[in-house]
């Protein structure tokens, strides 16, 4: 197990190193500098700015310094907001994104598991068809369409929730719902398939033959065996939240990472783009790694045989 984790960590760092290096050189190839954001500077002023950002040094020097700074946790200074370090921007904006992502993942997974279970228990019944339909719609309808409809109906027309911006809990409701639809639908479809397979397996018949209640059969024997594999799709689900945040935060004007990321791309704020790219890549790799390790710990079959899949 330890060897497996070490191996995975190694690949994680290689991937991050490649992303950091590639994005660094790509950004250097591109036109645009801190100066494009604030024109009308004299040559002298330009020189001062370039010196301040260390942009006059040879490329290899800049590259080594860049990597060194990353290790130290310094992602450089934003072009767009002069004098503001990228890490500061991330710190300021990560709160809302994390809160939304967490709420969406938790609520979405719980609702999805419930939907999937209902579908499996009432297999081929009305409840099965409706929850399957719901799940297909949830995986199919693009989040921005759904978010738009939510905002129109519940904020603009009915006025139950704020239209946009960030404040108390009520500001998080609509974006959370918009974000959670995909994880919910994914979990529902997954649990339905797993549950149907588990409920058809021999050990469920054994459990029924013991005379325990149908409730205990479904929850103690069925659900547990279907939930363990669900961990494998939490990775893709969490990643969908990263993607979703880009568009949901735009629609609801939430001061989060996603909104800032899109803005930075629009104004060519390269240090911020690179910093956030690294952050997203890091989160992505971390989620996948944690999910794999978690799976090894939770499934008794894998746990004992030492984490080899």
């Amino acid at each position: 197990m330890a060897r497996y984790i070490a191996k995975r960590l190694f690949y994680m760092f290689v991937a991050l190193f490649i992303i950091a290096s590639v994005s660094f050189f790509l950004m250097k190839m591109l036109p645009g500098s801190p100066l494009s954001a604030q024109d009308k500077l004299s040559d002298e002023q330009q020189e001062i700015v370039l010196e301040k950002y260390g942009l006059n040094d040879p490329l290899p020097v800049q590259y080594v310094r860049y990597l060194g700074n990353i290790v130290k946790g310094d992602l450089g200074i934003s072009f767009q907001f002069s004098n503001t370090p990228v890490t500061k921007i991330i710190q300021d904006r990560i709160g809302p994104s994390m809160q939304l992502g967490f709420q969406a993942l938790v609520v979405g997974t719980i609702l999805g598991v419930l939907l999937g279970m209902i579908a499996a228990i009432f297999h081929n019944g009305f409840l099965d068809y409706s929850s399957t339909l719901l799940a297909v719609l949830g995986t199919s309808i693009p989040s921005f369409v759904f978010a738009g409809l939510l905002q129109w109906v519940f904020a603009v027309e009915l006025g139950w929730f704020p239209v946009a911006f960030w404040g108390g809990f009520e500001y998080t409701v609509l974006p959370t719902i918009a974000l959670m639809i995909f994880p919910m639908a994914t979990a529902a479809r997954f649990i339905r398939t797993e549950m149907l397979e588990v409920l058809g397996s021999d050990f469920i018949t054994t459990a029924r033959a013991k005379g325990i209640t149908e409730y205990a059969v479904v929850f103690k024997h069925g659900l547990r065996n279907s939930l363990i594999p669900l961990i494998t799709v939490i990775g893709p689900m969490a990643i969908s939240l990263l993607t979703g945040s880009l568009v949901i935060e735009q629609i609801f004007a939430i001061p989060g990472i996603g909104e800032q990321f899109v803005n930075s791309i629009m104004v060519n704020d390269y240090p911020t783009i690179m910093g956030m790219t690294l952050l997203i890549a890091f989160l992505f790799i971390l989620i996948v790694l944690v999910v794999d390790i978690l799976y090894g710990f939770i499934d008794p079959r894998i746990r004992i045989s030492g984490g080899e899949k």
Binding site: A15, I239, L242, I265, I273, A281, V288
Partner: peptide, 17 residues
């Protein structure tokens, strides 16, 4: 290694370049 690189990051880098 490629698996570790999120799709989204690649796409955004391509859009910038």
């Amino acid at each position: 290694i490629l698996v570790g690189i999120p799709n989204l990051v690649v796409i955004l880098l391509m859009i910038i370049i």
